[in-house]
Nucleic acid binder design. Structure first.
Lengths: 253, 253
DNA sequence: GACGTAAGTTTACACCGTTTACCGTTAACG
DNA sequence: CGTTAACGGTAAACGGTGTAAACTTACGTC
């Protein structure tokens, strides 16, 4: 059994490369507007469909794999865009990241659906675990933590939380780098969940198109939702500045 | 060409019955956990798949038909549950309806996805039109209107709205019985859009399972989101009463 | 160099949506 | 009343899907 830093054998390297190619081809298919199918992916790699079963146990696993990598790649995009603001300005970074997240969801609704609207049943714990690793989730949580460090926005004490929620923030299964958050400050995670729920809501509504197209195009619904969250995050003093950044970001091509 | 109250011929009655059966069989399939497919529906009716093409032009149309009827049936359920409060208590009715909506989304995630997470492309205007007819949309809009009549919550003046949004509330393509809302009061529709977006958000998040299962089970995220909307709807004085109703509804089997 | 295993192939099965050609039955009309 | 056209269905077929099993080939290791 290989160690974690195992000397990668030739085979293992090749296998890793194949996984990368699977993701690449899948992403290309989706970008082209084609359906994501085992056969199409295989064909795109010059293989037959059953061969993919050496790498993935089922179609759903392929989807999960691709979803994870798409999320990772997308998050890198947002993060890069947000990085035009310095590290000590997490509020501005959050505004940019949210806007880019929305933009991504609007221009790539199929990818968005794959990553964020993919139903995850109560029971299958494998896919739940994968959800915990969500790159975007970690990124947003991290930004929120930095914002708290800077602005010290109020958050519920553990005693004020519903017992179930208390348990959930103490031992989170959501994507969150929570280890570095002191136990008594875990109420922050509740703020995170609520904020994420709001962001997820508008973006999903707009991305799936269950909304007046003009409203989507204007970006007002998204804008209003985000502005509502400035105060709870202790950013009321930053309102004008963040609004400017947001509008600037929304006006982007 | 028959009039609107055309004397229904035998054929027309039979055809209508067939449509009903299509919906019934489809609903049964979904309830059984099976996939919704043309072939399965046809088989369930003792027909062959191509025969269904006499009634729907494509699989997507079948889905739309079923989605519309599922929405209608579900709305009837919520409305009936909400009707345990009198007509002059729209706030209580809204609380119950929202809770039932969520309950429905949680117990029937596949149906929910069909109706509310079904991607609608920008272009295809047919499906957009269908969206405008959404029964649940009309029901919720109507409740909100009644709440406004009773509590007169503040809403933005037309001049304060973004031009695009102003246009959208004056000539809405969303499901809303807006004809009876005076032009100058159309800002209410903006409140409606925002509230619906928030409700849609949590419910979708919970229904698709992109969330800690314990948080879902506790209902706290949903509860908090709804409570946040009491004030904007002029229901701050009703907070305790509505909260009780909501908790009672959430505790239901 | 032999052996075991990993990574492919081919073949096959059971589905899927959709199109075409064909055929009774049914309703409408001159 | 008889003719005609539309309606509602069938069977067959095409190309597509995920998946399973058996088989082959090539590689890495002892």
């Amino acid at each position: 059994m290989p160690h974690l830093r195992a000397p990668v054998t030739r085979r293992e390297r090749q296998r890793e490369a194949t996984y990368d190619e699977i993701v690449d081809v899948s992403a290309r298919l989706l970008a082209e507007g084609a359906d994501l199918s085992l056969r199409a992916v295989a064909a795109g790699m010059g293989m037959t469909a059953p061969a993919l079963y050496r790498y993935v146990a089922s179609y759903q696993q392929l989807v999960d794999l691709v979803a994870f990598e798409l999320d990772k790649a997308a998050t890198a995009e947002w993060a890069e865009a947000a990085a035009r603001f310095p590290e000590d300005d997490p509020a501005a970074r959050l505004a940019v990241a949210c806007a880019r997240f929305r933009q991504w969801a609007l221009t790539r609704p199929r990818e968005f659906a794959l990553v964020f609207a993919n139903p995850i049943a109560e029971e299958d714990s494998e896919r739940r675990d994968l959800l915990t690793l969500s790159t975007s989730g970690h990124y947003f949580t991290d930004l929120l933590w930095q914002i708290w460090e800077l602005y010290q926005f109020p958050y519920p004490a553990l005693d004020d939380l519903d017992p179930v929620i208390r348990e959930a923030v103490l031992d989170p299964v959501i994507p969150a780098k929570a280890d570095h958050i002191p136990t008594e400050d875990r109420g922050i995670l509740w703020v995170y969940m609520r904020a994420w729920s709001a962001l997820y809501g508008v973006v999903t509504l707009e991305s799936t198109g269950h909304c007046d197209p003009r409203v989507i195009e204007s970006g007002q619904l998204f804008r209003a939702t985000l502005l509502d969250w400035l105060a709870p995050l202790g950013l009321h003093h930053e309102r004008d500045r963040i609004t400017t950044i947001l509008d600037e970001e929304l006006a982007r091509p």
